[in-house]
Amino acid sequence: MARPSLNDLTAFVAVATRRSFRHAADELGMAPSTLSHAMRSLEERMGVRLLNRTTRSVSPTEAGFELLARLQPALATLEDALDSIASFRGKVAGNVRINAPRLGAALLVRNVLPLMIERFPAVVVDLVVEGKLIDIVAAGFDAGVRLVDSIPKDMITVPFDGPVSFVCVASPAYLHRFGEPGTPDELERHRCIGHRVPSGKLYRWEFERAGQALTIETSGPVTLDDEELMVEAAIEGLGIAYVASPAAEAALAAGHLRRILTAWTPAPERIAIYYPGHRAVPPALRAFLDTVKATR
């Protein structure tokens, strides 16, 4: 059996992850018909069907999923090896577009960008704050930032910063006036600052203790869609807020807020950079990813 070329394998990964010959062809810079013919030739050489095709969609077969799972990390390792010699070609320059929620953007500005500017002054980081989970490829971004559990499975992830916990906080004045809840169920008797997520829905607060998970619908006098404003509202005594720990750490350290229901804090989550694994990583993005890894 003739071994498939690297180009054919890269094309297969593009089709299998994008689930569309047209979208994959746009990324690869070739005609959809040419790409479809290349995939049929690949299947003939390998002697197994890799893709299920209909008039409306394309998806991997069981064999295709197996090949995809093995190819993605292998191609990423190959790209790392090729990009490792970038410094021998001269100064790294260019733009890297990153999509991130406000929390992720703040962590990048605080922990990654200072070192990035020092190491790669000719690279411009174009950081766009976006609350919604979008298709970064279709929107023209090089990479995105999200909690690991919300990242699409076909993306390569690079965790950064420490684990993020979600915490309940309130001002000392609020707690002096209304008391401190001992369990999540007692929140129904308190003023809670609502959190509206980008989809428009109200976020339900999540708690966990000794393997017991609870999800609480809260109510209160104000609803906000920005964690920094939620922290400010809590400082002003408007109610109890439920936010990611980095958003509240300065106010907690200064004594403006206190953590409550600490025994019910859910397991922390990791935040990560993610990017497509089926396309060549540009030098500017590779410089950014290397800087992220250096700050962990």
Rank of each mutant, 00 (worst) to 15 (best):
P4V: 03
L6D: 10
L9P: 08
A14M: 04
V15C: 09
T17A: 02
F21M: 09
F21W: 12
R22I: 10
A24R: 07
A25E: 08
D26P: 02
G29T: 05
A31D: 15
A31P: 04
A31G: 08
S33T: 15
L35P: 06
H37T: 15
M39E: 07
S41G: 12
L42Q: 03
L42W: 00
V48K: 03
V48H: 01
R56I: 06
V58Q: 06
T61I: 07
G64D: 04
F65R: 15
F65H: 13
L67I: 08
L67S: 02
L68E: 09
L68H: 04
A69V: 00
R70H: 14
A74P: 02
L75P: 00
L78M: 10
E79R: 13
D80L: 11
L82G: 00
D83I: 01
R89D: 12
G90M: 05
G90F: 06
V92C: 05
G94P: 02
N95G: 00
R97Y: 06
I98H: 00
N99H: 09
N99L: 09
R102D: 13
R102E: 12
G104L: 02
A105R: 01
A106F: 00
A106P: 01
L107N: 01
V109C: 02
M116A: 08
R119Q: 13
F120N: 09
P121I: 11
A122K: 14
V128L: 10
V129Y: 02
A139W: 11
V145E: 00
V148I: 12
P152K: 08
D154W: 12
P159T: 03
V167A: 03
C168W: 07
Y174D: 03
R177H: 13
G182F: 10
D185M: 14
E186G: 02
H190S: 13
R191W: 15
R191F: 15
R191M: 15
H195K: 10
V197P: 01
V197C: 05
G200T: 06
Y203C: 10
E208P: 05
R209M: 11
R209P: 06
T215G: 07
T218A: 00
G220H: 05
V222C: 02
L224R: 02
E228I: 11
G237F: 07
L238A: 03
A241I: 06
A241L: 04
S245T: 03
E249D: 09
A251E: 07
L252H: 06
A253I: 00
L257P: 04
R258M: 09
T265S: 05
P266A: 06
P268K: 04
I271L: 04
Y274E: 06
P276E: 03
G277L: 09
A280T: 14
P283V: 11
A284W: 01
T291L: 01
K293Y: 05
